[in-house]
Computed example of a mutant assay.
Amino acid sequence: MSVSGGGVGGTRARVLQAALNGSRGAADGAAVPLSPGDLVRAARETVAAGAGEVLVHPRTPCGRESLSPRVVGPLLEEMRGAGVRVPLTVPAGVAAEQDPAGRLERVRSWTVLPDRAAVPFAEPGARELARALLERGVAVDAVVPMGGGAGPEPLARFLEWAPPDPARVRLVAELAEADPALVAGLRWLPPVPVVLFGRDSAAWPVLRLAARCGAGTRIGVAQVLHLPDGRAARSNAELVAAALDVEGAAGSATGTAWSR
């Protein structure tokens, strides 16, 4: 079985999502956008560089991740008002709200909706939260860690879930390393789009693996602070441009990791 369009058996163009900030802060260097204005500029620059989607972690003025409608809504409005026309994703996990019931309350109170929300399936209440998002019309990225001691439970939790709108669900697998064996088992998944990504030392090897598989991928300072040649990245846009170059070089073997 092969992957096309970032999904098993799909037909859409492969997704490259720019992850603008994640858990990074000022101590991680000047490439990390901090203020809403910085995030808006970073989003515009990454789209101009070729990103097809943007993932942004909304933060309070003191730097804390938040699901509050007073934090999420204005940032999304500012990005869209600045001409960012690609799909916008926000995370909906423990880092922004510890309590599962609190997360549900927050997303149900949103007045401005993102296009997608990333739901970590390693965290409690993931299926209920994902269902609530779909009911609000927000597509879901089900984030599942694989390898590195993550265990099979998050993927099993995703596979056991029966979403009310499966066409609006995507599996986002965070790979601890670029091991084709981790990806091979995904060929038995239901026909949902798949995005693969890694962090830090795994980021670029996993991106190359995603290109060979024909899967979507994610890059940005949230994932890695260095370019493939080891130089410090100056911006998210520079990482996106490098990712497109890497994908072009690696894409000649597209589909091999998914073949039966």
Results as ranks from 00 to 15, higher is better:
2 S>F: 08
4 S>Q: 15
5 G>T: 00
9 G>P: 04
10 G>R: 09
12 R>A: 14
15 V>K: 06
17 Q>N: 15
18 A>V: 02
18 A>W: 07
19 A>D: 12
20 L>D: 03
21 N>T: 08
22 G>L: 00
24 R>G: 03
24 R>T: 00
24 R>E: 02
25 G>T: 09
26 A>I: 11
26 A>N: 06
27 A>L: 14
29 G>V: 11
35 S>P: 10
40 V>C: 08
44 R>I: 09
45 E>R: 11
45 E>V: 13
46 T>F: 06
52 G>Y: 02
53 E>F: 08
57 H>K: 09
57 H>W: 12
59 R>K: 10
61 P>A: 13
62 C>A: 15
68 S>F: 11
70 R>D: 13
71 V>S: 05
73 G>V: 03
73 G>I: 04
74 P>D: 06
76 L>C: 00
77 E>A: 13
79 M>L: 06
80 R>N: 05
80 R>M: 00
82 A>K: 03
84 V>A: 03
84 V>F: 05
87 P>V: 00
88 L>G: 04
90 V>D: 04
92 A>V: 15
93 G>M: 03
95 A>E: 07
96 A>V: 06
97 E>I: 06
97 E>D: 07
98 Q>S: 12
99 D>H: 00
100 P>V: 02
100 P>A: 02
101 A>C: 14
104 L>V: 04
107 V>F: 07
107 V>P: 01
107 V>E: 02
111 T>D: 12
113 L>F: 11
114 P>K: 03
115 D>T: 06
116 R>D: 03
116 R>N: 04
117 A>C: 02
117 A>R: 07
118 A>R: 00
119 V>C: 08
119 V>S: 00
121 F>M: 14
122 A>R: 14
123 E>G: 09
131 R>E: 15
133 L>P: 06
136 R>D: 10
137 G>N: 00
138 V>L: 09
141 D>C: 10
142 A>Y: 05
142 A>G: 08
143 V>A: 06
143 V>P: 05
146 M>S: 07
146 M>V: 07
147 G>P: 04
150 A>K: 07
151 G>T: 07
151 G>H: 02
153 E>Y: 10
153 E>D: 10
154 P>N: 02
156 A>E: 15
161 W>M: 08
162 A>Q: 13
162 A>P: 04
172 V>F: 09
173 A>W: 01
174 E>C: 11
176 A>C: 04
183 V>S: 05
184 A>Y: 14
189 L>V: 10
190 P>R: 13
193 P>K: 05
194 V>G: 07
195 V>I: 08
196 L>D: 02
196 L>S: 01
199 R>E: 15
200 D>Y: 13
206 V>H: 01
207 L>H: 02
207 L>T: 03
208 R>P: 11
209 L>S: 03
209 L>T: 01
210 A>S: 14
211 A>F: 02
215 A>P: 05
216 G>V: 12
221 V>S: 12
223 Q>E: 14
226 H>N: 15
229 D>S: 09
230 G>V: 14
231 R>I: 10
240 V>M: 08
241 A>C: 06
244 L>C: 08
244 L>S: 01
245 D>Q: 13
245 D>A: 11
245 D>W: 11
247 E>K: 04
249 A>H: 07
251 G>C: 11
252 S>Q: 15
253 A>R: 12
254 T>P: 10
255 G>Q: 01
255 G>Y: 02
257 A>T: 13
259 S>G: 15
